[in-house]
Write a protein that binds this DNA or RNA. Structure first.
Lengths: 228, 228
DNA sequence: AAAAATAAATGATAAATGTCATAACTAGGA
DNA sequence: TCCTAGTTATGACATTTATCATTTATTTTT
């Protein structure tokens, strides 16, 4: 099995301040998992007894509303960690993490994490910063959901998806989402999302190649996202 | 000047795990402030070099959108603390905190807070839990803003305002908000908020006594908030 | 107390968005 | 390969929500 102290992921995520010894301890206790597309890594309301470190693959973090609709709160990819909020706050998981494609994930037991939190204040601070940043993003999202029309939110979301996932060798945003998932991200009906995507294509701002989306004019998209 | 170790606030908020000595240190360095209605305790984008402990009074936390609209993210009252997210994440303040009435506030310098974070892991954990809880609420808010109609959000907000501020001796929600502020909380136009409040009154679900709002039928309101 | 400014209320209308129906397309399994 | 189920696309229409105009009420200032 691979060794945490050699894992390139440790350079990218909140684990980067861990010492060699700490990483060795993680290695000894970690388990590697394959999560198939559509499966859940974590499920809303469940307890969790460790932290997930995403090696490879993409997933969506969602919340089921009282009206039965799914809201996508955040996208997560290789290098990100999951479950630390729940461990630190000692509360059940707040969101579903569902794989958008097959994923490789490491699970590190809670005990080892808490040990490092106690020993390594810098690690602890990194986790706090991570959660604080998420809170800051969430507040921005509340404001945008509440105040901006659907078209603006779609533009914003497309830019943000390219920011998060980058582009493939054909300059398309490097993630495959259904139209329904896009709608559940911006908070609108699937048909509305489809219609607005078609309009953006007609206006030459984006191109649609099946499920792949290519941004043709980033500036225009940015203007739309700000209401112009 | 009052002494932190005798302050009843210490029993309610995230400071409750501080030792007598720590509270004495806070006392020595703290400053007490009076914030008049309409003034800001903190301002979006500014740096902050301490933590505010609300003694008395209410304030709103807001965010200015790119389209110039104000979004109310959260309400804060006596016993709550402000500014800890910014201190911990070493980032500028993310929200404006504006007094809804005259307030009494204590300011505790950053140095003393960081000292306690280093010495007192339980205090540190309490702050993390506080931020985690805020994140959890924020995610719920995103989902509701994105998926629920204005009427449902208004019902939800009224219930939540009563939850936060309680009721006065006439059973009215114990906070004075303008219709515009209510609209900025649920994310709608002022006229829409007014209209929906009038409808709720006509249906006997609430009563409107000037700016004071009295909830007459909590169950109905709860049903509305869930889309029934 | 009167005047001025601000806030609340309401109607009329326009614009945005959701819902339903249906057709065209796509992808995965028999 | 064909077939089926799911997805995407589009039109027609209903509903929700925003905007503008105006009146009434309330608060603040003089």
């Amino acid at each position: 099995m691979s060794n945490c102290s050699h894992c390139i992921m440790k350079r990218f995520n909140a684990l980067k301040t861990l010492t060699h010894d700490e990483l060795e301890r993680f290695s000894d206790h970690k388990t590697s998992l394959i999560i198939k597309k559509g499966e859940n890594i974590m499920t809303e309301g469940n307890s969790i007894n460790g932290l997930y470190c995403i090696q490879d693959g993409k997933c969506k973090l969602t919340k089921l509303n009282t009206n039965g609709k799914e809201q996508i709160i955040k996208f997560v990819k290789g290098g990100d960690i999951l479950g630390h909020r729940s461990i630190l706050s000692e509360e059940p998981v707040g969101l579903n993490a569902t794989a958008l494609e097959d994923m490789r994930v490491c699970f590190i037991p809670k005990g080892d994490i808490l040990e490092s939190i106690k020993d390594n204040p810098q690690f602890s601070l990194n986790l706090i910063k991570n959660i604080s940043l998420q809170l800051s993003h969430a507040n921005t999202a509340i404001s945008q959901m509440a105040q901006k029309p659907v078209k603006d939110r779609l533009a914003e979301t497309l830019l943000s998806l390219e920011e998060i996932f980058g582009v493939d060798n054909e300059d398309c945003i490097d993630v495959i989402l259904t139209r329904e998932e896009i709608a559940n991200t911006i908070g609108t009906a699937t048909e509305s999302a489809i219609r607005l995507l078609s309009n953006l294509k007609k206006d030459g701002v984006i191109d649609l190649l099946g499920k792949k989306i290519k941004i043709l004019n980033k500036n225009t998209l940015k203007n739309i996202s700000e209401g112009y």
